[in-house]
Amino acid sequence: MSDNWNLWEVFVRPRRGLDHVHAGSVHAPDAEIALQHARDLFTRRGEGVSLWVVRSADIVASDPGDAGELFDPADGKDYRYPTHYELPDEVANM
């Protein structure tokens, strides 16, 4: 059948030194064509120097319904931020 091309997620590195960032998705029957489609779709104006493609089905995502419990261990821990600490006025830069 003509419509069973897989869905791939595309990540683009905009410049050397920067992270790959999710750009969107493409349909392709294999990785090679996924890369070509990603090139044509997301880098027509020099937006990238490197591409990753990953089958969408292979991505494991956290459940947004669980976001509360999943992330609340980080709540109320001001001491993890530099602004939590009081310094003598004489300390100009720290």
Binding site: M1, S2, N4, W5, P29, D30, I33
Partner: peptide
Amino acid sequence: GAWVREAAVAHAEKVA
């Protein structure tokens, strides 16, 4: 374009 999409799938399956 159907034959192109089908051929691409057949090729991917053969390589796999």
